[in-house]
Write a protein that binds this DNA or RNA. Structure first.
Length: 423
RNA sequence: GGAGGGAUCGCACAACCUGGUAGUGCACCGGUCUCGAAAACCGGCGCCCUUCGGGGCUUGUGGGUUCGAAUCCCACUCCCUCCGCCA
């Protein structure tokens, strides 16, 4: 959510930022509503001031044993006017808020402007895609032959786009989760949390999934709860409606969670394998910081996510998403894309974003500045560190051997109980 | 699921019975004082509107009663204790 004061002062900036993100918003209509709202607020506050003053006088008259019936009669009328005006103001405010909720965060000035992913800007490449001199296979074929993932039986119990991991496949998934959490907690300074996987609507609202993206999520209707699409939601909401101290910032959290996405499959892409499923595992990184530091924190967040791929020795590149490819709530996003032979391309495996104060304003996460003064909104950031299912796919494909087995990356061997090869 | 208790500024609590417009302590920030600090004292320390004079809002949330609600009434949310059920 943007600051209405900022929108009042910079309507054309907001209009342009939204348009660059491919969102059309009627700023003039919003500001007209805002203007009416402010006039009505002034009006009702005049009446309330009168009511407060006279009510106090009534109290004094009563105490002195004198008659106050004229004043009481007047206040009865004032009370009725106040009630009607308050109702009108409430409706205006509701309309204004629903406008505000639909306005995306504005892209940072360093973000390339463009309509879609073709305008994304490549920042760097790391490692070399493997040059196979044998008949290599996509991960879903490898996994089927190694009997480590069973999509057919998963479909029986749940439906399409759910994997059932088995044997060393399940072990690999668990090894990756532990490896990533250990790396982030011991070397990058993150505090590990294990959050709920179901959250209420208020939490989804705080991070920006609601109200715009309800259809992308699984809702547990009987309880008014949503399955989280990412640990970003519960972890960012840890500090919702709190006032933090500047001294405790920045805060770093890392969390493993399962992630649930209803939208996967709608586009008909990546119908096979581990790339696009309704449920997948992810280790998430979340930061709370001051506005002054948030962009350097974004750079280090990116490095923390990259470190996972470097330890696993998987080739990847980093791109800065263009305005048209970014998400609703983000001001700047780097995607890390891992090389995936079956796609013959780099594919997203992590998304690292600075939301500035967009989520903090929605979720009311503020901090008390060290030298006093008004409370300020924190900046929130998060990034995948990493998506586990896609990491499994990348390992299977990039580490496959001519004989159909898969070598285990050296960094993972201790987490695999010494197993060096999946065969 | 049942029975009780509770929610007031960042923290701890008061005012609630008996309606009169929210106070105290701690923490924090600024100032005075000091070589500096502590202590002491003064001010600040939640949000909104503002023509910068000021005004309004704020006691978990939403309603109701009333000239006036932290206080009385109703509903809801969350937390705590006990009982039941339970991995």
């Amino acid at each position: 959510m943007l600051d209405i004061k900022f929108i009042r002062a910079n309507p054309e900036v907001v209009q342009k930022g939204a348009r660059d993100k491919g969102v059309n918003v009627d700023i003039d209509e919003l500001l007209a509503l805002d203007d009416r709202w402010r006039k009505k607020v002034y009006e009702v506050e005049q009446l309330k001031a009168r009511r407060n003053k006279v009510s106090e006088e009534i109290g004094l008259l009563r105490k002195a044993g004198r008659d106050a019936s004229d004043a009481i009669a007047e206040m009865r009328r004032v009370a009725a006017s106040v009630k009607a005006l308050d109702e009108e103001i409430r409706e205006l405010k509701e309309r204004i808020d629903s406008y505000l909720m639909e306005i995306p965060n504005l892209p940072h000035s360093t973000v390339p402007v463009g309509a879609d992913e073709t305008a994304n800007q490549e920042i760097k490449r790391w490692g070399e895609p493997p040059a196979f001199d044998f008949n290599w296979k996509p991960h879903w074929e490898l996994a089927a032959e190694l009997d480590i993932i069973d999509f057919e039986r998963a479909a029986k119990m749940s439906g399409a786009r759910f994997p059932l991991l088995k044997g060393l496949g399940a072990r690999l998934e668990r090894a990756l989760i532990n490896f990533m959490l250990d790396l982030h907690t011991t070397e990058h300074g993150y505090t590990e949390v294990f959050p709920p996987f179901l959250v209420n609507a208020r939490s989804m609202f705080g991070t920006g999934q609601l109200p715009k993206f309800e259809e992308d999520m699984f809702k547990v209707g009987s309880h008014e709860l949503y399955l989280i699409p990412t640990a970003e939601v519960p972890v960012t909401n840890i500090h919702r409606e709190e006032v933090l101290k500047e001294e405790e910032l920045p805060l770093y959290y890392t969390a493993y969670s399962a992630c649930f996405r209803a939208e996967a499959g709608a586009a008909g892409r990546d119908t096979r394998g581990l790339i696009r499923n309704h449920q997948f595992n992810k280790v998430e990184l979340v930061k709370f910081t001051t506005p002054e530091r948030s962009y350097e924190e974004l750079e280090s967040l990116l490095q923390h996510a990259e470190a996972v791929l470097q330890r696993l020795e998987l080739p990847y590149r980093v791109v800065c998403l263009s305005t048209g490819d970014m998400t609703f709530a983000s001001a700047k996003t780097y995607d890390i894309e891992v090389w995936l032979p079956s796609s013959n391309a780099y594919r997203e495996i992590s998304s690292c974003s600075n939301f500035e104060d967009f989520q903090a304003r929605r979720a009311e996460i503020r901090y008390r500045p060290r030298d006093g003064g008004r409370l300020r909104y924190v900046h929130t950031l998060n990034g995948s560190g990493l998506a586990v299912g896609r990491t499994v796919a990348a390992i299977l494909e990039n580490y496959q051997q001519p004989d159909g087995t898969v070598r285990v990356p050296d960094a993972l061997v201790p987490y695999m109980g010494g197993v060096q090869r999946i065969d």
